[in-house]
Simulated scan of single mutants.
Amino acid sequence: AETGSDRLHIGQGSLIYGEIDNDMVRINGDFEVNNSSTFKVYKSTGRVGIGTAPTYKLDVAGDRIRLVNGTEWIAMRTDGGTGYLDLSFGAGSLVIQGSTTNENVIINPSMNKVGIRTWTPQYELDVNGSIRAIGSVYYGGSTTSANGTAYTKPDYVFGNEYSVMKINEVEDYLHLENHLPWVTSAEKEKRENGDATDMTRMAFETLETVENLQMQIIELNKKVTELSELIKTQETEIKVLKQIHE
């Protein structure tokens, strides 16, 4: 100890140095608690180990690291050999942010919503950007869409109870409504979803449209076949009449 001061030196070269008046202790070397791996700080590598000799800057042997503030916490854990990021909030969200505020992933537990490149997700998954799927995209599991309407493949178009519109009826409808009869109008889409488009509904409406067109083509083909047979019959009759007059 320094005479007449609050300084303490232990070991050659002040291996342990303390300033009592400043509540400060400095250890100029590796530091261990209980002469084991309970807690270690390595001066040469700048590594800290809790429960283990550190391999990384902070190395913890245990099932959980937790930051707590009252009843709220953020924890990283490996319970049962499975990795978790365990979150608890009062009214907060988990945010992973890049170099700008537009590069973010936000998870809002209280609203069960996830946003990518948006801070205010309006749907369970809200993405401000493009989406790509290498595999298939499935609709179903739950029988309703976001607006509460259930969709099924429109095979009913081929049923006996379904009335397929005739081509002239479709033409009249287009002149009156300015959209196909099987597809939601732009005005209704805007009213229900703002600037968004319900792609699930559009997919099923498009399929119903295609099926209706196919049924119309089948009917037209029947008429073409009938007319072809009629033309053949008339050609035969004309040929016979020509032979009679000759």
Results as ranks from 00 to 15, higher is better:
A1I: 09
E2M: 15
T3W: 09
S5L: 11
I10M: 06
Q12N: 12
I16T: 06
D23E: 11
D23Q: 14
I27C: 12
N28T: 07
N28W: 08
N34A: 14
N35H: 12
T38F: 08
Y42K: 09
S44P: 00
T45L: 07
R47T: 04
R47H: 12
G49T: 06
G51C: 00
G62M: 00
L67N: 05
V68S: 10
N69I: 02
W73Y: 15
D79P: 04
G81L: 14
L85E: 12
L87C: 12
S88L: 13
L94S: 07
I96S: 14
Q97P: 04
Q97W: 06
S99I: 03
T101V: 14
N102M: 13
I106D: 02
N108E: 15
N108A: 06
N108L: 11
M111T: 15
P121T: 02
P121L: 03
P121A: 05
Y123V: 07
V127P: 01
G129E: 05
I131R: 00
I131C: 01
I134P: 00
G135A: 06
V137M: 09
Y139A: 04
N147Y: 02
Y151S: 00
P154G: 04
D155T: 13
G159M: 09
S163F: 13
L174N: 09
P181G: 06
T184E: 01
T184V: 02
K190Y: 04
R191Y: 09
D195Y: 07
A196D: 12
M199C: 09
T200Y: 00
R201C: 02
L207A: 13
E208K: 08
T209I: 08
V210Q: 14
N212G: 15
Q216C: 11
I218K: 14
T225I: 09
L227Y: 10
L227G: 02
S228D: 07
S228L: 06
S228M: 09
K232L: 00
K232N: 03
E237P: 03
K239V: 01
K242F: 03
K242W: 01
